[in-house]
């Protein structure tokens, strides 16, 4: 029996090692392509190992390092701010929803759920954000849009429900207010789910380029994703100009490898951040997904 178990474990480990290798492999391809030579790629194809090793794609992207570094900084700042604010606000609404004795709870539930199905569309949202609230061309547009995600609220709520009721009961008897209970007890007990949701929010913001596309015209406020998207798009526009009577020439831009290098630059930090949250991850999702 024991031996059989051991063999089973080994087989499982081999299986998962192969699976993970398969899953991770495309990342390696990306990395390898980003360090390849543009000419070699177009004539001989992608290689598993870059030969010759060529960093000109990174040189192109970083030829203006100020801009990229500023975008890194800005994206980090708004991602963190949005993360903190979003997790706090979502917990604030999730906590009352976790208390079944609250009147009108189902109304609020539906109020949130409805927004998952229906939305106003681009133009009305743009009108609101830029004409009424004047959030365009400010960092707030990154932070304030999409702060409350109903799906995340439901996940947090379900986790809160799993917290033993005695804790709240005894605190109430001691005369603590709901605010105190929420801040001093519920939040500290819910680290796993909060960390998990925080990671989701952070990465969502980190990967955001659409907001800048629509609301940001000041170059100093470009998000990282948008900036890189723009570098790529600029290469295309240069070409279009040329066909339409402009005189710009296409310079020697390594388009294919630049693309890959940009992907690495953007995705890198996200991949580095993830393992730090990992220890909360399974617990955060444990009860979080069960129906409420």
């Amino acid at each position: 029996m024991k031996r059989q178990n051991k063999i089973q474990q080994i087989v499982l480990i081999i299986f998962f090692s192969l699976l993970c290798l398969g899953i991770i492999f495309p990342f390696w391809l990306l990395l390898s392509a980003s360090f390849s030579n543009e000419g070699v790629i177009t004539t001989q194809g992608y290689q598993i190992w870059p030969n010759p090793f060529d960093i000109s794609a990174y040189e192109y992207v970083f030829r203006n390092p100020d801009q990229i570094l500023r975008a890194y900084g800005l994206t980090f700042v708004f991602s963190i701010s949005a993360m903190v604010l979003s997790v706090l606000l979502m917990s604030m609404i999730a906590y009352p929803l976790a208390r079944s004795n609250l009147k009108g709870k189902s109304v609020i539930n539906f109020y949130l759920y409805f927004t998952m199905l229906f939305n106003g569309g681009l133009v009305p949202t743009y009108l609101l954000v830029s004409r009424t609230l004047h959030l365009n061309d400010t960092i707030w547009v990154y932070i304030l849009l999409g702060l409350i995600n109903p799906w995340y609220v439901f996940m947090i709520r379900t986790f809160f429900k799993g917290i033993p009721g005695e804790i709240v009961e005894s605190a109430t008897i001691d005369g603590a207010s709901e605010y105190t209970i929420f801040v001093r007890m519920i939040l500290p007990l819910s680290k796993p789910v909060l960390a998990t949701i925080a990671l989701f929010v952070f990465l969502g913001k980190w990967n955001d380029w659409n907001t800048a596309l629509i609301y940001i015209t000041k170059p100093e406020l470009y998000s990282l994703q948008y900036l890189l998207q723009k570098i790529m798009e600029d290469i295309n526009i240069l070409k279009q100009n040329q066909e339409l009577g402009g005189m710009l020439s296409v310079s020697d831009i390594p388009a294919e490898t630049v693309r890959m290098a940009m992907a690495i630059i953007v995705a890198g930090p996200a991949l580095v951040v993830f393992p730090f949250f990992q220890k909360y991850f399974v617990k955060g999702l444990t009860v979080g997904s069960v129906k409420g």
Binding site: L89, M92, Y95, T115, G120, G121, T125, L128, I148
Partner: peptide
């Protein structure tokens, strides 16, 4: 009431950013 007050800001934010633009349908 304390619980309702906790909901207030999130509910307001959802109203502003999700419900107001819905007139666009």
């Amino acid at each position: 009431w304390q619980l309702y007050s906790l909901c207030l800001i999130p509910v307001l934010l959802v109203f502003i950013f999700n419900y107001i633009p819905m007139f666009g349908v």
